[in-house]
Design a protein around this nucleic acid. Structure first.
Length: 899
RNA sequence: GGGCUGGUAGAUCAGUCUGGGAGAUCGCCGCAUUGGCUGUGCGGAGGCCGCGGGUUCAAAUCCCGCCCAGUCCA
């Protein structure tokens, strides 16, 4: 179901635009060109700007961003700073920033938070990896792009502007650039995404879509649409596309980062020298790609054929020329993407956005190897940092981190591949075929892509059967699909529902951080939960555990908050009724420890950033009365040295007696003043934020309770660091009196160990080392001696063999360990003999020579438990030694006779 | 967040499915051959079989928990 919309705007009327229907796709569009028959977008129209720039001037990327922002600023829009490409920092539904509007979702678009300015304009770097495999090949796909967006947020009582003005602005911007008005088409279309929807125009010129003007006004509820309270003008100008058409280069890559492409070409070893006109080929390929909807590899094959036909060259020859070029473009693109990802602090890992960064990074390395790039990955990314530094100096600031993390990741990948090569080689030792199952297994659990497997197989030579299906990655995905359905959802404990209207609980602990007792009136009692009009009890939240204590001498077991209402779970609610005024006392000891640990958490977080780098972000925290736990993003293990530095710096801050201030502030103001760093604790809802600031050290949005100054925190002791998952390190620490206890406990361990060894604590390490070495040596000696003893014992036993049938039989009880008995038996046994040795501890060993036809396992089981091989069995005998010996002899006699 | 794989000598790994004397190759040390090095031959050292528990007569091997590492997916 679609909602009807009148696409005719004032501008169309004034300028004489006419509405037409595209004869290819059937869409309606508006144009000034009476002769136009098609909508203007690919694939209905072909590119006409290649070699024929459509703007007055040629623009670089930087110039285009500035021109765009300046134009809309002149038109009454406030320019705002770009957001990070890591949308995960402020929302939990997407990982990367995929559009400029993503910056304002969900708080602003839902109407909860007012926009920083209205209307506003932003040039937002975005990342989309959906079409990553097309990048480089189609000439137009990018992984990172910049969406120029001017946005207006219209409320019922405050209308900014809507369709008329939006289209007019677009038209004027095109005019400003000098794009001929007759070349423009406004295609009527409909946009849906992220639960919202609305009509839109796709604006094209010379066969390429340059902008989309969306009028977000509906929420999608099931199959129907509901009007939004806030109507949003959501525009997206493809900054890179504008750059492209302004230069008219064969591909978008040449226009955007031509210098990087050039450097890559120079540094590539595997580019065939060809006399053909590269420019012409690229132009044809990009143009034809524009005419196609390219979805998969099959489409690309078709494209290749078409281009070859058109240029009248052999497909294979074309492929030889074009493929390396495509890799180079892809490398240039991916490294730009990495500059943004790593520069905005993504830490490569095997989860979430970190995984995406690793994916791009490894893909790039593979391409680099294919075309034999001699530059290092870091050097290429560095080229982009240079190009981007004017607009994004913050990326260049992260240079040290970027270079180091790339180095680490390169090394990791190299190791993975080496390991992989080994696995494949070993696999091929035994078989001449690699099945699909093997391929999936290798990729899924070891990260070895099929192409690498094929390479290794080729290196080894011989005929090895490998078939890589075209839909390999789909098959891998399917394998995961199957499992996914089996997953179970965890159930969250919820609070009992309350009937009737209860206002938000007044939170006293913010205003009176040192107060320990209070009086409040009971508003509601549900199950064992009591709801008061105000409370001093801190409810669990922001990683901090709740307060405990008493209400009217009843124990407070748990305190939770939901929708602004605080629920106190009591041991008993007997004798309490609604309307009562009750006295609450909080467990101050617990509270003060929580406060210390929480403030310590902020200090440690800030210090970790100083010591390890700006890429460090809080990935979770847990504050309980005994200790604090902080998870931070980091790309390698934290060394002992780094822990020491973090600990020292943290304690310096404690000693400097810094003031800790907490104030409530509007979200916009806080973001403007402190930036994104305030969102350490993850997504924070609402318009009003509580900002906790440690003077000169740290600022975070945080709802927890804190010390008033850092000296109150006391001695911060980092107990350990552990790797929670790839790319996330956990620090565990104590503060205040807990540290004293912790340090005493450590001392106890040392003292006790020293006492056991009878040495002073200082001598522990060397002493322990000596003992360990001695222990190893002695173990060796014992083993050696056991062998010797076993060897000597044979002389005592040699003459005790008895003849039974064809066999020489020896059954004796001797002293010794299993090891000794084993050696003795080894020396005694001959081809026709049976040797059975027992010791007093119940161990029995049955050994026989190769000509003996009696199963030793069977024999052993006659007198006890055990097992082994036919010629060597060991176990435990049951009963008296003499009886056992007799029984064994009888059994051997019986079996020997049988033959 | 979910899945999968691995941890055995200094290094690379086999042995684990199906429980029963800890192995291979390289490297290291010594001896022989040589004027010396390389090479070759012979000999040798080197293992808490990741840690902790359980099952069993018996665990590198089976079960449970933990630690460490790798990898795929959302």
């Amino acid at each position: 179901m679609k909602t009807s919309h009148n696409y005719k705007v004032k501008l169309f009327e004034e300028k004489g635009f006419i509405r037409k229907r595209c004869e290819k796709c059937g869409k309606y569009f508006w144009t000034l060109d009476e002769d136009r028959k098609t909508c203007g977008d690919s694939p209905c129209d072909r590119y006409t700007f290649i070699g024929n720039p459509v703007t007055k001037e040629r623009y670089s990327y930087t110039e285009m961003v500035r021109t765009f922002l300046k134009f809309f600023e002149r038109q009454g829009h406030t320019p705002i700073k770009r957001y990070p490409v890591t949308a995960r920092r402020w929302r939990d539904d997407i990982l990367l920033t995929i559009a400029s509007i993503a910056v304002f979702q969900p708080w602003v678009t839902k109407g909860i938070v007012d926009p920083v300015a209205n209307p506003l304009v932003i040039a937002q770097p975005c990342i989309r990896l959906n079409d990553i495999d097309n990048v480089g090949r189609t000439g137009r796909h990018l992984t990172s792009f910049t969406m120029g967006g001017h946005h207006a947020f219209n409320k019922k009582d405050r209308e900014i502007y809507w369709t008329d003005r939006t289209v007019e602005l677009c038209y004027n911007f095109m005019k400003e650039l000098g794009i001929p008005k007759e070349s423009l088409t406004f295609i009527e279309s409909w946009w849906e995404g992220g639960g919202n929807a609305g009509p839109c125009y796709e604006v094209t010129s010379h066969g390429v879509e340059l902008a989309t003007l969306v009028f977000m006004q509906y929420e999608k509820v099931g199959d129907s649409y509901r009007e939004m309270p806030l109507k949003v003008v959501d525009t997206g100008y493809g900054i890179e596309r504008f750059v492209w058409v302004s230069q008219g280069t064969p591909t978008i890559y040449d226009a955007l980062f031509g210098s990087v492409v050039e450097r890559l070409k120079e540094s590539a070893r595997n580019i065939p020298g060809e006399s053909l006109d590269m420019e012409e080929i690229l132009k044809e390929s990009a143009t034809l790609a524009g005419l196609m909807d390219i979805e998969d590899r099959g489409d690309l094959k078709i494209l290749r054929k078409e281009v070859a036909k058109k240029l009248n060259i052999d497909v294979e020859r074309l492929d030889r020329i074009l493929t390396p070029m495509e890799y180079i473009y892809a490398i240039a693109d991916h490294t730009r993407c990495l500059a943004f990802m790593l520069g905005d602090g993504i830490v490569p890992s095997n989860v979430k956005d970190g995984y995406l960064a690793r994916l791009v990074l490894r893909k790039t390395l593979r391409y680099m190897e294919k075309v034999g790039i001699t530059l290092s990955l870091g050097e290429i990314v560095d080229l982009h940092l240079e190009e981007l530094k004017e607009l994004y100096p913050e990326l260049l600031e992260m240079r040290d981190y970027i270079m180091d993390v790339i180095k680490v990741e390169e090394e990791r990948y190299r190791e993975t591949l080496n390991r992989g090569r080994g696995v494949v080689k070993r696999l091929l030792k035994y078989k001449r075929e690699i099945t699909l199952e093997d391929l999936i297994e290798l990729y899924d659990s070891r990260g070895i892509p099929p192409e690498v497997v094929v390479n290794v197989a080729r290196e080894i030579g011989g005929d090895i059967k490998i078939e890589v299906p075209d839909n390999f990655y789909t098959l891998v995905a399917e394998r995961h699909e199957r499992r996914k359905s089996e997953e179970k959802e965890k159930k969250k404990m919820d609070l009992p529902p309350i009937d009737g209207d209860v206002g938000e609980t007044q939170l006293l602990f913010y205003k009176y951080p040192r107060m320990r007792e209070f009086e409040g009136r009971i508003l509601k009692i549900v199950d064992n939960y009591v709801i008061l009009d105000k409370t001093l009890f801190y409810p669990e939240g922001g990683g901090q555990k709740c307060d405990t204590g008493t209400i009217e001498d009843r124990k407070v077991l748990d305190v939770q908050k939901k929708d602004g209402i605080v629920y106190h779970k009591l041991s008993s609610v007997e004798g309490l009724k609604e309307g009562d005024v009750v006295k609450g006392v909080i467990d101050w000891d617990r509270r003060i420890n929580l406060m210390r640990n929480h403030t310590a958490t902020h200090i440690v977080n800030a210090v970790a950033q100083m010591v390890l780098g700006k890429h460090v972000w809080q990935a979770g925290s847990d504050v309980d009365p005994e200790r604090g736990r902080l998870d931070i993003t980091h790309y390698k293990r934290i060394s002992r040295e780094e822990i020491k530095r973090i600990e020292e710096l943290a304690n310096r801050i404690v000693l400097e007696n810094k003031v800790v201030r907490s104030i409530f502030m509007e979200r916009n103001e806080a973001e403007q003043r402190y930036g994104f760093r305030i969102y350490q604790g993850g997504v924070v809802p609402g318009n009003i934020l509580r900002i906790v600031e440690i003077e000169d050290v740290d600022v975070e949005a945080c709802g927890g309770t804190h010390c008033e100054n850092t000296s109150e925190v006391g001695y911060i002791k980092i107990l350990r660091s552990e790797r929670v998952q790839d790319g996330v390190e956990r620090l565990v620490y104590t503060s205040g009196i807990n540290t004293v206890k912790e340090v005493s406990a450590m001392e106890d361990i040392l003292l006790k160990s020293a006492e056991i060894l009878g040495v002073p604590v200082e001598r522990l390490p060397e002493t322990v080392e000596r003992f360990f070495k001695e222990w190893k040596k002695q173990k060796k000696t014992i083993e050696e001696l056991e062998k010797r003893i076993g060897e000597y014992k044979r002389y005592m036993l040699l003459n005790r063999f008895k003849r039974v049938g064809d066999y020489q039989v020896l059954i004796e009880e001797i002293e010794g360990t299993p090891k000794e008995l084993m050696t003795t038996a080894d020396y005694l046994v001959g081809d026709n003999s049976i040797v059975i040795l027992l010791n007093r501890e119940g161990y029995i060993l049955c050994r026989c020579g190769k000509n003996v036809d009696i199963d030793m396992v069977h024999l052993l089981r006659v007198v006890g438990k055990g097992g082994g091989r036919k010629d060597l069995a060991q176990g435990k005998y049951l009963g008296d030694v003499e009886e056992v010996k007799e029984k064994l002899l009888e059994e051997i006699e019986r079996l020997a006779k049988k033959e």
